[in-house]
Amino acid sequence: MKRTLLAAILSAVVLPAIPSTAAASAIESACLRSDRPQATRALCRCIGSVANETLTRSEQRRAAAFFRDPQLAQDVRMSKSDRDNAFWARYRAFGDRAEHFCTGR
């Protein structure tokens, strides 16, 4: 019984600290799958980290779709919807922050 309890406690403490690909953000995963030659693992990890700090999970999923279909980004950017405009403002802030932290520009 004590061993089972100890194993449960250790797995609750240790497992979250072990990085896994399942924990990668939608942005990081989309970056890694993109065909852009500059999309290195380190750069995608950095961009994903910034995304985790600035966008919600659903916003990350929405933005990740831009990697597959850039026209979606253009559609959101040109939208007259308040919801799309608010998202685009957060997405632009994310992009500016990612550029600053991940490329030093």
Rank of each mutant, 00 (worst) to 15 (best):
R41L: 04
D35G: 15
F67C: 05
C31Y: 05
D35V: 09
I18N: 12
T103G: 05
A26V: 04
V14G: 11
I27S: 07
R62T: 11
F87L: 10
R3W: 10
S20E: 02
R62H: 08
T40F: 02
R41H: 06
R90Y: 06
H100S: 12
T40V: 06
I9Y: 01
A17F: 13
E59F: 03
S25E: 06
A24E: 14
F66S: 11
S58M: 07
T21W: 09
E28Q: 15
D75T: 15
T4N: 09
D96T: 13
R45C: 00
V76A: 05
N85G: 02
A24F: 03
G104S: 13
A65E: 04
A30S: 08
G48P: 05
I27F: 11
D75W: 00
F66A: 13
R3P: 07
D75M: 09
A64W: 02
F87N: 11
G95W: 01
P16L: 05
E99G: 08
A89Q: 13
A65L: 01
P19F: 03
R92C: 02
F87W: 12
P37Y: 04
L15R: 00
A17R: 14
L10T: 07
I47C: 04
M78D: 14
P70V: 06
D82F: 01
V14P: 09
V50C: 05
R97M: 06
S29G: 06
D96E: 15
L55R: 06
C46S: 07
I47R: 08
R83G: 09
F101T: 02
R90E: 11
V13H: 04
H100W: 00
A42M: 10
R33S: 08
S79K: 06
K2P: 00
S79L: 07
A30V: 02
A24G: 01
C31S: 10
H100I: 03
